[in-house]
Amino acid sequence: MDDARLDLTDLFVFTVPGERTVLIMNVHPLAPAAGAAFHPDAVYRINVDVDGDDLADAAFSFVFSPPRDGQQTATAYWATGAQARTPEPGGQQIFTDVPVASGAEPRVAESGPYLFFAGLRSDPFFADLDGILKDFQWTGVDWGADKNVLSIVLEVPSDELCPDPLIGVWARVSLWQDGRLRSVDRGAHPSLTAYFNADEAKEAYNEGEPVHDWDTYHDAWREVLRHTGGYDAQAAEEVLLTVLPDILRFDRDLRAAYPNGRTLTDDVTSARLAMVSGGRIAGDHIGPHTDLLLDFPYLGTPHPDPATTPG
Protein backbone atom coordinates (compact mmCIF):
# COMPACT_ATOMS: atom_id res chain seq x y z
CA MET A 1 0.00 0.00 0.00
CA ASP A 2 3.00 2.29 -0.51
CA ASP A 3 3.36 2.68 3.24
CA ALA A 4 6.56 1.28 4.72
CA ARG A 5 4.98 1.12 8.18
CA LEU A 6 2.83 -1.75 6.89
CA ASP A 7 5.71 -3.65 5.27
CA LEU A 8 6.56 -6.86 7.13
CA THR A 9 10.27 -7.50 6.61
CA ASP A 10 11.17 -10.47 8.81
CA LEU A 11 9.99 -12.94 11.42
CA PHE A 12 12.22 -14.73 13.94
CA VAL A 13 11.53 -17.37 16.58
CA PHE A 14 14.15 -18.99 18.81
CA THR A 15 14.73 -19.98 22.42
CA VAL A 16 17.09 -18.53 25.02
CA PRO A 17 18.37 -19.93 28.32
CA GLY A 18 15.77 -20.23 31.03
CA GLU A 19 13.38 -22.16 28.76
CA ARG A 20 12.05 -19.02 27.15
CA THR A 21 10.80 -18.42 23.62
CA VAL A 22 11.55 -15.22 21.70
CA LEU A 23 9.25 -13.90 18.97
CA ILE A 24 10.36 -11.00 16.76
CA MET A 25 8.60 -9.30 13.87
CA ASN A 26 10.22 -6.43 11.98
CA VAL A 27 8.51 -3.86 9.78
CA HIS A 28 9.33 -0.56 8.06
CA PRO A 29 12.43 -1.24 5.93
CA LEU A 30 14.74 1.74 5.63
CA ALA A 31 13.27 3.20 8.81
CA PRO A 32 14.77 6.64 9.46
CA ALA A 33 16.83 7.21 12.57
CA ALA A 34 14.46 10.00 13.59
CA GLY A 35 10.70 10.08 13.24
CA ALA A 36 10.00 6.42 12.50
CA ALA A 37 6.64 5.28 13.90
CA PHE A 38 4.28 2.33 13.72
CA HIS A 39 0.99 2.90 11.90
CA PRO A 40 -1.66 3.92 14.48
CA ASP A 41 -4.48 2.32 12.45
CA ALA A 42 -2.72 -1.03 12.02
CA VAL A 43 -2.79 -4.26 13.97
CA TYR A 44 0.57 -6.04 14.06
CA ARG A 45 0.20 -9.72 14.95
CA ILE A 46 2.22 -12.87 15.60
CA ASN A 47 0.14 -16.05 15.27
CA VAL A 48 1.07 -19.36 16.89
CA ASP A 49 -0.21 -22.81 15.87
CA VAL A 50 0.30 -25.39 18.63
CA ASP A 51 -1.52 -28.45 17.24
CA GLY A 52 -0.35 -28.60 13.62
CA ASP A 53 -3.68 -27.75 11.97
CA ASP A 54 -2.29 -24.55 10.36
CA LEU A 55 -4.72 -22.37 12.32
CA ALA A 56 -3.87 -19.90 15.07
CA ASP A 57 -4.29 -21.24 18.60
CA ALA A 58 -2.66 -18.19 20.15
CA ALA A 59 -2.17 -14.69 18.82
CA PHE A 60 -0.16 -11.75 20.07
CA SER A 61 -1.56 -8.47 18.73
CA PHE A 62 0.16 -5.10 19.00
CA VAL A 63 -1.47 -1.71 18.47
CA PHE A 64 0.05 1.75 18.67
CA SER A 65 -1.11 5.22 19.60
CA PRO A 66 -0.87 8.11 17.14
CA PRO A 67 2.59 9.70 17.39
CA ARG A 68 2.54 12.88 19.44
CA ASP A 69 5.57 15.15 19.84
CA GLY A 70 7.74 12.31 18.55
CA GLN A 71 6.39 9.85 21.13
CA GLN A 72 4.24 6.75 20.68
CA THR A 73 2.96 3.98 22.96
CA ALA A 74 2.24 0.30 22.38
CA THR A 75 -0.37 -2.06 23.82
CA ALA A 76 -0.03 -5.85 23.52
CA TYR A 77 -2.77 -8.47 23.67
CA TRP A 78 -2.59 -12.25 24.04
CA ALA A 79 -5.58 -14.18 22.72
CA THR A 80 -6.14 -17.94 22.68
CA GLY A 81 -8.72 -20.30 21.25
CA ALA A 82 -11.45 -18.78 19.11
CA GLN A 83 -10.29 -15.24 19.91
CA ALA A 84 -6.93 -16.01 18.30
CA ARG A 85 -8.69 -16.56 14.95
CA THR A 86 -10.47 -13.23 14.77
CA PRO A 87 -8.56 -10.36 13.12
CA GLU A 88 -9.26 -7.83 15.86
CA PRO A 89 -6.91 -7.57 18.83
CA GLY A 90 -8.45 -9.32 21.80
CA GLY A 91 -7.85 -11.50 24.80
CA GLN A 92 -5.67 -10.59 27.75
CA GLN A 93 -3.96 -7.21 27.70
CA ILE A 94 -0.43 -8.09 28.81
CA PHE A 95 1.19 -4.68 28.19
CA THR A 96 -0.52 -1.29 28.18
CA ASP A 97 0.78 2.04 26.86
CA VAL A 98 4.43 1.00 26.77
CA PRO A 99 6.64 3.79 25.37
CA VAL A 100 8.03 3.01 21.92
CA ALA A 101 11.81 3.36 21.78
CA SER A 102 12.90 5.88 19.19
CA GLY A 103 16.51 6.30 20.28
CA ALA A 104 19.64 4.24 20.75
CA GLU A 105 18.71 2.83 24.17
CA PRO A 106 16.16 0.00 24.18
CA ARG A 107 13.18 0.62 26.45
CA VAL A 108 12.35 -2.84 27.79
CA ALA A 109 9.00 -3.43 29.49
CA GLU A 110 8.43 -6.28 31.95
CA SER A 111 5.09 -7.69 33.07
CA GLY A 112 5.22 -10.84 35.19
CA PRO A 113 7.24 -13.38 33.19
CA TYR A 114 6.94 -11.44 29.90
CA LEU A 115 9.41 -9.06 28.30
CA PHE A 116 8.37 -6.65 25.56
CA PHE A 117 10.06 -4.12 23.31
CA ALA A 118 8.81 -2.02 20.43
CA GLY A 119 10.86 0.53 18.57
CA LEU A 120 13.76 1.35 16.30
CA ARG A 121 16.60 -1.17 15.94
CA SER A 122 19.36 -2.12 13.54
CA ASP A 123 18.07 -4.37 10.75
CA PRO A 124 19.55 -7.87 11.22
CA PHE A 125 18.85 -8.88 7.59
CA PHE A 126 22.02 -9.48 5.57
CA ALA A 127 22.27 -10.04 1.82
CA ASP A 128 24.02 -8.89 -1.34
CA LEU A 129 20.80 -7.56 -2.89
CA ASP A 130 22.66 -5.63 -5.58
CA GLY A 131 24.42 -8.85 -6.62
CA ILE A 132 21.09 -10.67 -6.84
CA LEU A 133 19.68 -7.90 -9.04
CA LYS A 134 22.82 -8.04 -11.20
CA ASP A 135 22.19 -11.66 -12.16
CA PHE A 136 24.22 -13.05 -9.26
CA GLN A 137 27.38 -11.10 -9.98
CA TRP A 138 28.34 -10.61 -6.36
CA THR A 139 29.39 -7.17 -5.13
CA GLY A 140 30.52 -8.16 -1.64
CA VAL A 141 28.34 -5.40 -0.19
CA ASP A 142 25.82 -6.18 2.52
CA TRP A 143 22.74 -4.12 1.67
CA GLY A 144 21.44 -4.30 5.23
CA ALA A 145 24.63 -3.30 6.99
CA ASP A 146 23.51 0.28 7.72
CA LYS A 147 19.71 -0.10 7.71
CA ASN A 148 17.14 0.25 10.48
CA VAL A 149 13.74 -1.33 11.05
CA LEU A 150 10.93 -1.01 13.55
CA SER A 151 10.91 -4.11 15.74
CA ILE A 152 8.41 -5.83 17.99
CA VAL A 153 10.11 -8.26 20.38
CA LEU A 154 8.35 -10.51 22.88
CA GLU A 155 9.88 -13.06 25.23
CA VAL A 156 7.67 -15.55 27.08
CA PRO A 157 8.13 -18.73 29.13
CA SER A 158 8.17 -21.59 26.66
CA ASP A 159 5.76 -23.80 28.61
CA GLU A 160 3.31 -20.95 29.09
CA LEU A 161 3.23 -20.32 25.36
CA CYS A 162 2.70 -24.03 24.68
CA PRO A 163 3.77 -27.15 26.64
CA ASP A 164 4.43 -29.05 23.40
CA PRO A 165 7.85 -28.17 21.95
CA LEU A 166 6.60 -27.99 18.34
CA ILE A 167 4.97 -24.72 17.31
CA GLY A 168 4.24 -22.92 14.05
CA VAL A 169 4.52 -19.14 13.75
CA TRP A 170 3.54 -16.51 11.18
CA ALA A 171 3.10 -12.74 11.24
CA ARG A 172 0.51 -10.41 9.79
CA VAL A 173 -0.03 -6.67 9.40
CA SER A 174 -3.63 -5.49 9.02
CA LEU A 175 -5.08 -2.03 8.55
CA TRP A 176 -8.44 -0.61 9.56
CA GLN A 177 -10.27 0.53 6.41
CA ASP A 178 -13.96 1.38 6.14
CA GLY A 179 -14.70 -0.18 9.50
CA ARG A 180 -12.96 -3.50 8.93
CA LEU A 181 -9.48 -4.91 9.22
CA ARG A 182 -7.80 -5.61 5.90
CA SER A 183 -4.72 -7.83 5.87
CA VAL A 184 -2.05 -6.03 3.85
CA ASP A 185 1.02 -8.19 4.54
CA ARG A 186 1.69 -11.61 6.02
CA GLY A 187 4.37 -14.26 6.03
CA ALA A 188 6.78 -16.46 7.93
CA HIS A 189 9.45 -17.88 5.64
CA PRO A 190 11.79 -15.21 4.23
CA SER A 191 11.86 -14.17 0.56
CA LEU A 192 9.00 -16.32 -0.67
CA THR A 193 6.84 -13.66 -2.27
CA ALA A 194 9.81 -12.09 -4.05
CA TYR A 195 10.61 -15.30 -5.90
CA PHE A 196 7.28 -17.09 -6.19
CA ASN A 197 4.43 -14.59 -6.44
CA ALA A 198 3.85 -12.41 -9.49
CA ASP A 199 2.96 -8.82 -8.67
CA GLU A 200 -0.70 -9.36 -9.46
CA ALA A 201 -0.86 -12.27 -6.98
CA LYS A 202 0.71 -10.54 -4.00
CA GLU A 203 -2.41 -8.76 -2.75
CA ALA A 204 -4.44 -11.97 -2.63
CA TYR A 205 -1.54 -13.78 -0.97
CA ASN A 206 -1.26 -11.15 1.76
CA GLU A 207 -4.99 -11.36 2.46
CA GLY A 208 -4.97 -15.16 2.58
CA GLU A 209 -4.69 -17.67 5.41
CA PRO A 210 -1.84 -20.19 5.61
CA VAL A 211 -4.27 -23.08 5.97
CA HIS A 212 -5.20 -22.57 2.29
CA ASP A 213 -1.65 -22.06 0.98
CA TRP A 214 -0.96 -25.56 -0.32
CA ASP A 215 -4.14 -25.87 -2.34
CA THR A 216 -3.88 -22.30 -3.64
CA TYR A 217 -0.20 -22.01 -4.54
CA HIS A 218 1.58 -25.32 -4.89
CA ASP A 219 0.81 -25.75 -8.63
CA ALA A 220 2.07 -22.28 -9.56
CA TRP A 221 5.07 -22.47 -7.26
CA ARG A 222 6.00 -25.92 -8.56
CA GLU A 223 6.19 -24.37 -12.01
CA VAL A 224 8.47 -21.62 -10.67
CA LEU A 225 10.85 -24.23 -9.30
CA ARG A 226 10.80 -26.14 -12.59
CA HIS A 227 11.72 -22.95 -14.43
CA THR A 228 14.35 -21.58 -12.01
CA GLY A 229 15.89 -24.76 -10.64
CA GLY A 230 15.14 -27.53 -13.11
CA TYR A 231 13.07 -29.49 -10.61
CA ASP A 232 10.85 -32.36 -11.67
CA ALA A 233 7.35 -32.48 -10.20
CA GLN A 234 8.18 -34.81 -7.30
CA ALA A 235 11.31 -32.93 -6.25
CA ALA A 236 9.48 -29.60 -6.44
CA GLU A 237 6.69 -30.88 -4.20
CA GLU A 238 9.19 -32.12 -1.63
CA VAL A 239 10.84 -28.71 -1.52
CA LEU A 240 7.54 -26.85 -1.33
CA LEU A 241 6.48 -28.91 1.67
CA THR A 242 9.18 -27.05 3.63
CA VAL A 243 7.63 -23.62 2.98
CA LEU A 244 3.93 -24.26 2.29
CA PRO A 245 1.88 -23.45 4.18
CA ASP A 246 3.82 -20.28 4.93
CA ILE A 247 4.27 -21.11 8.62
CA LEU A 248 7.67 -21.22 10.31
CA ARG A 249 7.83 -24.51 12.22
CA PHE A 250 9.99 -24.71 15.32
CA ASP A 251 10.72 -27.79 17.40
CA ARG A 252 12.02 -26.20 20.57
CA ASP A 253 13.63 -29.46 21.70
CA LEU A 254 16.12 -28.91 18.85
CA ARG A 255 18.55 -26.09 18.20
CA ALA A 256 17.00 -23.18 16.36
CA ALA A 257 18.44 -22.99 12.84
CA TYR A 258 16.36 -22.10 9.81
CA PRO A 259 14.04 -23.71 8.75
CA ASN A 260 13.64 -25.03 12.30
CA GLY A 261 12.72 -21.64 13.71
CA ARG A 262 14.97 -18.76 12.74
CA THR A 263 17.72 -16.94 14.61
CA LEU A 264 19.13 -13.51 13.87
CA THR A 265 22.27 -15.02 12.33
CA ASP A 266 20.71 -17.66 10.06
CA ASP A 267 21.77 -17.21 6.43
CA VAL A 268 18.28 -17.32 4.93
CA THR A 269 19.32 -15.54 1.73
CA SER A 270 21.72 -18.33 0.81
CA ALA A 271 19.13 -20.94 1.77
CA ARG A 272 16.55 -19.39 -0.53
CA LEU A 273 19.01 -18.93 -3.42
CA ALA A 274 20.00 -22.59 -3.19
CA MET A 275 16.35 -23.59 -3.11
CA VAL A 276 15.16 -21.65 -6.14
CA SER A 277 18.26 -22.47 -8.20
CA GLY A 278 18.23 -26.19 -7.52
CA GLY A 279 21.55 -25.87 -5.71
CA ARG A 280 23.40 -24.13 -8.54
CA ILE A 281 23.73 -20.92 -6.49
CA ALA A 282 25.11 -21.79 -3.07
CA GLY A 283 24.93 -18.33 -1.53
CA ASP A 284 25.79 -14.65 -1.71
CA HIS A 285 28.92 -14.73 0.53
CA ILE A 286 27.52 -12.22 3.04
CA GLY A 287 27.74 -13.02 6.75
CA PRO A 288 25.54 -12.06 9.70
CA HIS A 289 25.76 -8.73 11.44
CA THR A 290 28.08 -8.26 14.38
CA ASP A 291 26.06 -5.64 16.29
CA LEU A 292 23.54 -8.08 17.78
CA LEU A 293 22.99 -8.08 21.54
CA LEU A 294 23.35 -11.08 23.83
CA ASP A 295 20.36 -9.98 25.88
CA PHE A 296 16.82 -8.79 25.24
CA PRO A 297 15.81 -7.28 22.79
CA TYR A 298 18.70 -8.96 20.91
CA LEU A 299 18.72 -6.62 17.89
CA GLY A 300 21.50 -4.09 17.52
CA THR A 301 21.56 -0.37 18.26
CA PRO A 302 19.94 1.70 15.49
CA HIS A 303 22.22 3.29 12.92
CA PRO A 304 22.29 7.09 13.17
CA ASP A 305 21.98 7.78 9.45
CA PRO A 306 21.03 4.71 7.41
CA ALA A 307 21.06 4.82 3.65
CA THR A 308 17.67 5.42 2.07
CA THR A 309 18.09 3.60 -1.24
CA PRO A 310 19.63 0.27 -2.26
CA GLY A 311 23.14 0.48 -3.58
Score class of each variant (00 low, 15 high):
Met1Leu: 15
Met1Tyr: 06
Ala4Gln: 11
Leu11Met: 11
Val13His: 11
Val13Thr: 15
Pro17Arg: 11
Glu19Arg: 10
Thr21Tyr: 04
Met25Tyr: 02
Leu30Gln: 05
Ala34Asn: 06
Ala36Gln: 01
Pro40Cys: 07
Asp51Cys: 04
Asp69Tyr: 01
Ala74Val: 07
Ala74Gln: 04
Thr75Leu: 03
Trp78Glu: 06
Ala82Met: 07
Ala82Pro: 06
Gly90Asp: 09
Ile94Val: 15
Thr96Phe: 14
Ser102Gly: 15
Ser102Pro: 00
Ser102Val: 14
Gly103Trp: 00
Ala104Thr: 14
Val108Phe: 06
Glu110Phe: 06
Phe116Thr: 13
Ala118Met: 04
Leu120Val: 01
Arg121His: 10
Asp123Leu: 05
Ala127Val: 11
Asp128Ala: 11
Asp130Asn: 13
Gly131Phe: 07
Lys134Trp: 11
Asp135Ile: 14
Ala145Glu: 12
Asn148Tyr: 00
Val153Gln: 09
Leu154Tyr: 04
Arg186Asn: 13
Gly187Lys: 03
Thr193Met: 13
Ala194Pro: 01
Glu200Met: 09
Lys202Leu: 14
Glu209Val: 13
Trp214Arg: 15
His218Gln: 15
Glu223Leu: 09
Leu225Ser: 02
Thr228Leu: 15
Ala236Ile: 07
Leu241Gly: 10
Thr242Asn: 12
Thr242Ile: 07
Val243Glu: 01
Leu248Cys: 10
Ala257Glu: 14
Pro259Cys: 09
Asn260Gly: 12
Gly261Phe: 03
Leu273Cys: 08
Ser277Tyr: 00
Ile281Thr: 13
Gly287Leu: 08
Asp295Gly: 14
Pro297Gln: 09
Tyr298Ile: 09
Thr301Leu: 08
Pro304Phe: 02
